Simulated scan of single mutants.
Amino acid sequence: MTSPKYSLLIVGGCVSRDTVDPLLGKSLELKRYVARQSFISAGTDATKLVPKVDLRSQFQRRMLEADLAGSLFRDVEENSEVDLVLWDLNIERLGAWQFDVDSFATDSGEFRRLENYSSITTGVPHIDFGEEDHFRIWKERFFQFKDLLQRNELVEKTLLLAPDWALVDETGETVGLFEAVKAGAYNAIYRRYWDFAEANGFEVLRMQDTVADSHHKWGPAPFHYTEDVYDVFRETIMGKLA
Rank of each mutant, 00 (worst) to 15 (best):
R17N: 08
N152W: 07
F223S: 06
H224S: 13
A42E: 11
K139H: 07
W138R: 00
P22A: 13
W165A: 11
V15I: 13
N200T: 00
L49E: 05
D213G: 01
L9C: 01
R192Y: 08
R74D: 10
A46H: 03
G172I: 04
H216N: 04
I120F: 02
L24M: 03
L64F: 01
T171N: 03
A185M: 09
R206L: 11
F202W: 09
V168C: 13
G12K: 15
L167Y: 01
F73N: 08
F143T: 09
F129S: 02
K157W: 00
E156M: 08
K182H: 04
R93W: 13
T121W: 03
A46G: 05
V124F: 06
E140Q: 04
E131S: 05
D169R: 07
G130S: 07
E170N: 07
E110H: 03
E92Y: 06
G123K: 13
G219T: 14
E132G: 03
S16H: 10
S108W: 09
L23C: 12
W138T: 00
S214R: 11
T236N: 02
R62H: 09
E235Y: 06
P163R: 06
L23P: 05
Q60P: 01
V232D: 00
S57M: 12
R61F: 10
L30Y: 14
D147G: 01
P125E: 02
P222A: 06
Y6A: 12
L161K: 04
Y33W: 07
S7V: 04
S118Q: 14
L89A: 06
Q58V: 05
K157A: 01
G70C: 14
G109W: 05
I189M: 11
G130Q: 07
F59M: 05
G239D: 02
F39D: 01
V34E: 01
Y117L: 00
F143K: 15
Y33E: 00
E77Y: 07
T47S: 01
S27A: 15
F111N: 02
G172D: 06
H126K: 08
N116Y: 13
D45H: 06
D195A: 10
L49K: 10
L84G: 05
A199K: 02
F135T: 06
I237A: 10
A180E: 10
A188T: 03
S119M: 14
A188C: 02
Y193P: 02
V181S: 03
A69S: 14
V211P: 07
S7A: 12
D164M: 03
P125Y: 10
L160Q: 09
L28T: 03
D83K: 03
D231H: 13
K31A: 15
V15P: 05
F202C: 15
E170Y: 13
A69Q: 13
I237K: 04
K217P: 05
H216I: 12
F73V: 08
N152K: 13
